[in-house]
Design a protein around this nucleic acid. Sequence first.
DNA 1: CGCGCTATTGAGAGAGCTCAATGTGCGTGG
DNA 2: CCACGCACATTGAGCTCTCTCAATAGCGCG
Lengths: 246, 246
Amino acid sequence: MFSSDPNAMGMLIRKLESIAFLSEEERQAIQNLPIRVQALRARQDIVRDGDRPSQCCLVLEGWAVRYKLLSEGRRQILSFHIPGDIPDLQGLHLHTMDHSLATLTKATVAFIPHESLLDLTTRYPTLAGIFWRETLIDAAIFREWVTSMGRRSACERIAHLFCELYLRLEAVGLASEHRCEMLVTQIELSDALGLTSVHINRVLKDLRQRELITLKSRNLTIEAWNELTRTSDFDPTYLHQRRPVA
Amino acid sequence: MFSSDPNAMGMLIRKLESIAFLSEEERQAIQNLPIRVQALRARQDIVRDGDRPSQCCLVLEGWAVRYKLLSEGRRQILSFHIPGDIPDLQGLHLHTMDHSLATLTKATVAFIPHESLLDLTTRYPTLAGIFWRETLIDAAIFREWVTSMGRRSACERIAHLFCELYLRLEAVGLASEHRCEMLVTQIELSDALGLTSVHINRVLKDLRQRELITLKSRNLTIEAWNELTRTSDFDPTYLHQRRPVA
DNA sequence: CGCGCTATTGAGAGAGCTCAATGTGCGTGG
DNA sequence: CCACGCACATTGAGCTCTCTCAATAGCGCG
């Protein structure tokens, strides 16, 4: 069950290197983290609101979401997570979950004990800073989402989200040439963007007709990157990626 | 200009003790941080989107906000900050501001050099964890705001925000008995909640008529705490305060 | 004690929602 | 390899919550 699969940690290292510099020693220390790899079905809860987890979940394959449930069946998706992400890294210092984490697609994840991560941050203060930075970027993305939900139209919100996800996928080598997988249904998009799936559908139709995007069977192509970023007010600064993107 | 005013740091210590335990030695180390205290007018920018600050801003008196500006004069307020808060603590590991910070009211703030804070986190790893925790709670509040903006009605959003601000003020000794100052205009409320000030006005009228709140000349009284939390789906877990609140 | 910003109220409009029906694609099992 | 079933996507019609525009009132600061 427990192993030190270099391939598994490769994804985490690639992700961290997209936001900070890692020394060889630090890379090695990450490689040596004990992990338990697990295959999960689509739409399966990993951690639930109210839980007090003792490990973090690293996404290796597939997509995950964090979400909150409200009264009357309302749901809000808080974030999308792709390979390389540790969606519940905040658990290191917040002991009670204030939301849930679930897979969106069939996925492979690796669980890392909190104690191993905390030990790592003690031994490598620079790495502690990098993991801290990772959670700060998480917060920066929430700020951008607050902005979208508060002051952007449905069309701008969708376009903005596509730009964000494309750049995040590109940063870990899962996208290029303005093409990527978009492993979400219109229902999930609506729960993330505070809209209804019916309205999402109509806006997507409009974006297609304006030839800004192609989206078919989970494959997104951004046909006009500049125009899409312009109409959605997209500025990648908030992703705090290490190298500026074209 | 630089000093070690024990009173100034008292506010920060009170805030940190509302979310974590501090040892005497740690309290002392915080007291010894070099600070530059400054009085500011209302509605004055402290740090701007795009800046690369070399210090953090601790609020001592008055309220501050973080905000983003969009095209066509749109503004989104991202968070409200009260005494004891360090609204730009993320600057320790995110070097470019992705939003602005400004006073809302006349305010007193203390600036703390990044290098002093980073040095503190190196010498006191436990304190590093506590500051990290502080930024994680910041993110938890953003998550709750995303949820509000996405899936709560105007009325629920306002009620939820009032509950949040009351508890945060209470945690640092600035509120009790369900009364507190609410140092925001309806325009600022609208920019925080993604609504218009006209609509805020109408919903406030409704909340008053239902005798849930009294709000007059910046003084808020929550007349029916239980009902207000119920109607707004408010669960204080996300604030991750150290002692559960009544 | 008057100016300017904030609060309040009315009337009409619009972005996005609800309800509902139909079409489509894909995974599963025979 | 094909047929079935189910979840997802698409479209239409009518509605509502919130917005826009606009006018007036009130309050706090200089």
